[in-house]
Design a protein around this nucleic acid. Structure first.
Lengths: 337, 337
DNA sequence: CATATTGCAACAATCGATTGCATTGCGCGG
DNA sequence: CCGCGCAATGCAATCGATTGTTGCAATATG
């Protein structure tokens, strides 16, 4: 009733301009099939009524969604929150890259209860493709769907024989770098904080083992395999420190979030970092050089990773069957080691 | 060519089942107009071909988008990244709340160049409503659009006479709480780190001033008004510490991110916290009790805030003209003060 | 002057679902 | 045996755009 004069669709505008809907559509698309004069007149009218053609209708007709689904699978680590800084950093980069390509970002945090979680998004018709931030413990589900659904890429591990296209750093090498660095710093007893149920973490641990065995220190590694989230890491580590007979002097954390909690727990146990214990994290998140002491870590170039993910995805949308990308991890030495 | 037998739409499935498309539509919606037997047969067939009706077409017909636009306006602080922990924490809560209501989350990071940035999303027809995380320096634009576009809510300040519906904590009171706490701790010289161009920050500063003047300490406040992001805060604060004649013993940071950088800068200047200087942050982000020392801060209950935002938005979508909500800030005392 | 060309705009089918209304078939009472 | 009512399904319009085809008029060409 209050919307008497409101222009709600292309047909309203057509009536107003005294032309057909098709002409309006072409005019707004700046098609040269429409006389310049008519075109400009219609565009002016659209602006005046601030009318914008309905994107959904357009997408339905041209059979594209204009959006990319970004999913954060939280299979293990059920307590893990979407606000985990790692996810969020990645998400930020993805948002930028997708916006640049004129696509929207449809965000979902999924807790995979049934194996249908991925299909539901992929086949919904509302996204042109899907980016997974992490594989969690859903490697098999992902691999299966990748067989029939091309526009899908995942951040995470790249295991031998995997079907789906992934982007991630060389986790094994990263684990090795971290551990070798600690060895060079003179550490002889080690602990690894992180849960190897996620393939990426398992690889990091594996790299750690490789480095230790090369140095003849294979038997000097303790593992705290708890599901470590921002909320649970601190108590778990604190308790571990209480119960362990001898605190190791080299700690490899599977993520910077875990490392940060470790720094705090160590401070509370009056263990000096890097005086008594050297700590290395993983990720190089934005906060990692704001901790006290600042965190030595294995840098994953998330900006580059996001750019790769988006690039690969669009090539897949275009039909290309792209190969996975493995990025080089890099040791960033700061105060904690 | 390889998609010979693929069921791509309701019509394909109808043909396969020997019924009309309408019947399939009703069957999949579990309508009782369709005989139970037929219904189950069709549902089984859909499952078998893992067919899912196209959401976009459905949304077009029933005139809803099934998605909520979540916008992060980055007007001031151009360097501020979407990965700012505050945004992300809020985003996580919103994602949960929206998913619960069966809506998707369309994320956009917007740098408002023209005043049309909000219209573009609101009128696109792809969202049922819009949530703004922060008002940035776009208060006027937001207020103007709120006049004609009902389903819009914003996290942020609630200023006298504002048109748009907002949810936020009482920033003035928060600033007051923080400052009073420092006064009680014996501080007599103060610094405020944060840029009052954003209305929320201005309010916090105002509260700070109120508390100081109540204690007769109005002239004891220094202000570092730089645009403080995770990346720029540390150098700015460090430089400020270098140049200031007398380091204050009470620091109010406009956010936890800034406070964290302050902690680091102070550590590097060999200033003990809380020995020499007491520090209070703002937000109580997940990492704030993982810093060394852990951070005293003004807690904004972001989970409750997100719940309010979503609740208000859906009431507005239903046509109700809701009032703004102001949440109570809470002082959380930890080690830094 | 008749015909070919070109430019502009209208017409109508289409994307894939939803839904009010019309239709069919069946059981049952009269 | 007829007709009525109800349950189950089909039909066709609709959401709001896009786009190939067609139609028409003005201009160019022989």
């Amino acid at each position: 009733m209050d919307d008497q004069g409101r222009v709600r669709n292309i047909t309203d505008l057509a009536r107003l301009a005294g032309v057909s809907p098709g002409t309006v559509s072409r005019a707004l698309a700046d098609s040269h099939l429409i006389a310049k004069k008519t075109r400009e007149r219609i565009q002016a009218m659209a602006r005046e009524h601030d009318f914008r053609p309905n994107v959904m209708a357009r997408n339905l007709r041209i059979k594209r969604a204009g959006a990319i689904g970004v999913l954060i699978p939280l299979g293990h680590e059920t307590g893990q929150h979407i606000s985990d800084p790692f996810f969020m950093t990645m998400l930020g980069h993805l948002a930028d890259a997708l916006t640049e390509r004129g696509h929207d970002l449809l965000l979902s945090r999924v807790i995979p209860t049934d194996p249908d979680w991925l299909n539901r998004v992929a086949d919904s018709g509302r996204v042109d493709g899907v980016i997974l931030i992490g594989q969690s413990d859903q490697f098999d589900v992902i691999d299966r769907i990748a067989g029939r659904y091309l526009p899908l890429v995942a951040w995470g591990a790249n295991l031998a024989g995997q079907v789906h296209c992934s982007v991630g750093s060389d986790n094994r090498k990263g684990g090795e770098l971290a551990t070798r660095h600690l060895i060079e710093r003179g550490c002889r007893n080690f602990a690894f904080f992180g849960d190897p149920i996620a393939p990426e973490i398992a690889e990091r641990l594996e790299g750690c083992r490789v480095a230790l065995s090369a140095a003849g220190l294979s038997d000097k590694l303790a593992i705290l395999p708890a599901h470590l989230t921002a909320e649970t890491a601190h108590p778990a580590i604190s308790q571990w420190l209480d119960n362990t007979s001898a605190i190791p002097n080299g700690i490899i954390a599977a993520s910077d979030v875990i490392a940060m909690s470790a720094l705090r727990a160590l401070a509370e146990h009056n263990v000096a970092v890097p005086g008594d214990v050297h700590v290395v994290g993983y990720d190089d998140l934005p906060f990692s050089n704001q901790t006290v002491p600042t965190l030595t870590t294995i840098r994953q170039d998330l900006a580059a990773g996001a750019a790769h993910l988006v690039d690969l995805l669009f090539r897949r949308i275009a039909g290309e069957n792209t190969a996975s990308v493995v990025l080089e991890p890099e040791l960033v030495v700061r105060q904690s080691s």
